[in-house]
Amino acid sequence: MAAYARRFARNRMAALGAGILLAMLFVAAFAPWLAPQDVYDLSTLDIMDSRLPPGGESFAGGVYWLGTDDQGRDLLSASMYGLRVSLVVALAGTTAALAIGVFFGILAAYAGGAVDTAIMRVVDLQLAFPSILTALVMVALFGAGLEKVVLAIAISQWAIFARTLRSTAIVERTKEYVKAAVTLRYSSARIMLVHLLPNSIAPLSVLVVAEIAAAISLEAMLSFLGIGLPVTRPSLGLLISNGYSYMLAREYWISMVPGAFLVLLLLSINLVGERMRQLNES
């Protein structure tokens, strides 16, 4: 593990990215304690403080380091909470996709034959469609909201996990230890779970990172369009769309601050993922 970290860090951009990512994860996890303002508690918001530029002074005398939005929310705090929401939703979605994908992938690899073909056909079908289309379909059919977004992410991502896992598992399946397990008459479930699964999972790590970034992007897009998460727990996408109407008034920070958080998050994840891919290939 330490050796891996050292190899990873040889590329300075990637190391920087990893650092930023860890910092953001920390902020997201501890946002309620770190944020100067609890943006969910409406009583702490002062409408007189609304639309202050970064560095503006609050009525009470404090400083809003990154400015405030139209409701008087401190953008630094709102972005921290938004980061949290975005990350949680994306992680939930990707985890669900992973669970579904792994299940079908292992099943297809182990069962083989008609089951394999059937599952792979569905996978190919799913993969032929861009994720945004699938997400739009889901939202169009089932409406907006937290669970729907997580579901949309899960449905648009499971297929790539299924396919990748199946490829690895098929190779593993021919190896000796699986044959040994079969000879020992272990139950299929046990073989799949205990033997095949742990040994096929490694190549997925790079993919998972990339897909998490995609999930964050997808959720942000949906929320921005108003068909994603509800207004009560704003994600970064929603915050950005909120500030959109103030652009013409040249109050850019209302959109740009959460936007910068989002971009930084995505950039750092992509840098890390790219470096992991490089290390994997060599």
């Binding site: 921005f224 996408g237 950005i240 013409l248 971009v263 995505l266 950039l267 992509n270």
Partner: peptide
């Protein structure tokens, strides 16, 4: 790498800010 990480709605906002406003 940068292009992939920038969400399209953010780049749109950026473009509008710079070129239109």
């Amino acid at each position: 790498m940068l292009l992939i990480s920038l969400p399209p709605f953010w780049t749109a906002l950026l473009l509008i800010i710079v070129f239109s406003i």
